[in-house]
Design a protein around this nucleic acid. Structure first.
Lengths: 161, 161
DNA sequence: GTGATTGCAAACTTTTTGCATCCGA
DNA sequence: TCGGATGCAAAAAGTTTGCAATCAC
């Protein structure tokens, strides 16, 4: 909601790139769906509502651009397509790197975000021990969400089927 | 090297599946390249040396099977193809879940393994806080490896080009 | 012998690219 | 005006699938 479109426009101009309707709409769709993890196709369908002529290739080119500008993050949930979510850099309270992790339910596929800064300590440890300079990380937990667990427990009791 | 082929054969028989040359060779190639993170194509090329008639589809079907049997792990380094590496379950000192993480160099693409059990504490924390039952995790660090860092420093000093 | 397995080719999915056209600055 | 941006269609790349032939048991 409070994503700064003006900031985005400035960033584009500073790079000598053009402010187009398509770019603004992709950003808008991403910022209006911060809670979802959107595939290129998802974004395409939503942008088409406002701009029916847009092509899927433009979506791919735009998310690529947004990635390079570090305005979105890439998430791979191993379901065959890459997902994108808007980062923190266009918000007023920007901090640079944002680090939330993903809890992926193996049963229903739901993805929950989870915040934790525990890894910062580990990153320092890695740098000391291996000389590898950590810039970013990606952490996914796979398991069973509470709902699926409860569903399983109740069917176990009733032995349905 | 010390991977137990006998254990694998037994596991296959127990599931009513057949022990084929192709399956044994895929396993052999994976266990002979524990340090690499192999794509289906990589495995295909290596198995072909011993068994030129094998088809790529068989590789895909076999790694799928090995995944279901929990004998290999899947790694996605976001370079467009899924990678596989042999797990611990066929080794004598098997522990079930093995947890090493991956340090991915953004410059040269090299992948270094890194062992750490820090996440176990975090997993308990997640279960308490969210009710999400963690079964497995995947952690990747992106950054710059020591060699690329050193290379960069030396070119910065000499200002080559 | 019989059903699982395989190799091949075709299909499928996601993403990228070439190119003529269009449009923002 | 003019070079970057777009839409379209084709291509690319990785993976899956249908099917007849083959092989393990």
């Amino acid at each position: 909601m409070s994503v700064s479109q003006e900031k985005f426009k400035e960033m584009l101009k500073k790079k000598g790139l053009k402010v187009t309707n398509q770019r603004l709409l992709v950003l808008e769709v991403l910022s209006g769906n911060r809670d979802r993890h959107m595939t290129a196709e998802d974004i395409y369908e939503l942008v088409k509502e406002d701009y029916p002529d847009i092509g899927l290739a433009t979506i791919y080119r735009t998310v690529q651009l947004l990635l390079e500008m570090q305005l979105v993050d890439r998430i791979n949930l191993d379901d065959g397509c890459v997902r994108y979510e808007i980062g923190q850099n266009l918000y007023e309270d920007a901090h640079g790197k944002h680090h939330h992790h993903h809890l992926v339910c193996k049963e229903c596929g739901k993805v929950l975000p989870f915040k934790d800064d525990l890894l910062e300590e580990l990153e320092r440890h890695i740098e000391e021990e291996t000389g590898f300079h950590v810039l970013d990380h990606e952490l996914k937990f796979y398991g069973q969400c509470r709902e699926c667990r409860e569903k399983q427990n109740s069917t176990e009791k009733h032995v349905e089927v």
